[in-house]
């Protein structure tokens, strides 16, 4: 409702009393104060580091400098150099992340649907399954990935069974393959896919499904015409939460990969930084990774984004 009216002379008059105006201003100020700590934190731990990263990526190594010695410069060639050498790893990272995201969606959606919709009347079972879903977070990410290495090992039960069924050749491996890396990524980021979809489907009005059934839509049609479009915000959030960290991940590739055709960009940055001591190169790659994710996500949001997330 507007607090102003046009007076006869055409002026805009404020209908609020002086006290009301004061109270409103005070409210506005309180809001600003509450945002300040968050803004400071972001400035200190995000904006400043990003600027440091950006400037570091442009540092140059002077002639005859010792290892790890760089001087401030505007060396844009750093970007060309790292992209020239590592573009396949960057592409592979996005490829792996994409496959893992699709797999996590295919596995995670039915899980979320089961817990959120099918078990709605069964509170206890729903609770137990939800805890099981979150349970992996109680143990370390590294440990869980290490465990996958055991599961997929040559003498492990999965590989043995697959060899027995002749799905895997007798001299084949599961570990140190792209398969293992994607499997690890899928597993590790699955909860990030399931939870947003679960939260969304928890609000699904099942009466709409009755209505769609009443209007001649079979179960499949009802799913694709009603349930899925309505849960789009959850799917959207889940895919972003899976894809972004998966694209930058290096633990899965390091533990489950073989360092030849499974290298992800995170691994390259790690080795540039800690092994090769090429700080500008690592910073440039980090920056490229950040920017590419930003661009991809922006395109994704533009294409599929829903009002709820904007």
């Amino acid at each position: 409702m507007s607090n102003t009216v046009m007076t006869k002379k055409g002026k805009i008059a404020d209908l609020r009393s002086r006290d009301e105006i004061k109270a409103e201003r005070r409210k506005e100020r309180t809001g600003v104060y509450l945002v300040v700590p968050g803004l400071l934190l972001l400035l200190l731990f995000f904006a400043v580091p990003v600027m440091v990263l950006l400037s570091m990526s442009l540092y140059a190594r002077p002639e005859g400098a010792s290892i790890g010695e760089f001087v401030p410069a505007l060396e844009f060639r750093n970007y060309a150099t790292v992209l020239g050498s590592y573009w396949p790893d960057l592409l592979r990272s996005f490829g792996f992340a994409l496959i893992a995201t699709v797999l996590a969606l295919l596995i995670g959606y039915p899980m979320a649907y089961l817990v959120a919709v099918r078990l709605r009347q069964h509170g206890l079972l729903q609770g137990i399954l939800l805890v099981l879903l979150i349970a992996p977070f109680f143990s370390s990410f590294i440990l869980r990935t290490q465990a996958w290495k055991q599961i997929l090992a040559d003498e492990g039960f999965v590989a043995q069974t697959m060899k027995f069924l002749a799905i895997l050749p007798a001299d084949g491996h599961l570990t140190a393959t792209p398969f293992a890396v994607v499997a690890g990524l899928t597993y590790n980021f699955l909860p990030f896919m399931v939870l947003p979809i679960y939260a969304n489907l928890g609000r699904l009005d099942t009466r709409l499904l009755e209505a769609s059934g009443d209007l001649y839509a079979g179960p499949m049609t009802s799913f694709f015409r009603v349930t899925l479009p309505l849960s789009a915000p959850g799917v959207f959030a889940g895919t972003l939460l899976t894809f972004i960290p998966a694209a930058g991940d290096y633990v899965n590739a390091a533990l489950l990969g073989n360092n030849r055709n499974t290298t992800m960009i995170g691994q390259v940055i790690d080795s540039r930084f800690f092994k090769v001591i090429d700080y500008p190169g690592a910073a440039a790659l980090s920056f490229v990774l950040m920017l590419s994710i930003l661009v991809l996500v922006t395109i994704y949001i533009r294409r599929f984004g829903t009002k709820e997330l904007m």
Binding site: D205, R207, L208, E210, A211, S212, G213, D214, L215, Y216, A217, G218, V226, P229, L230, A232
Partner: peptide
């Protein structure tokens, strides 16, 4: 017969219009 195969339509109390 399941509901989608019946020549019957319902006006629901909650209307149940598809919001999307």
């Amino acid at each position: 017969l399941p509901s989608h195969q019946r020549e019957v339509n319902t006006v629901f109390q909650s209307y149940a219009l598809f919001p999307h």
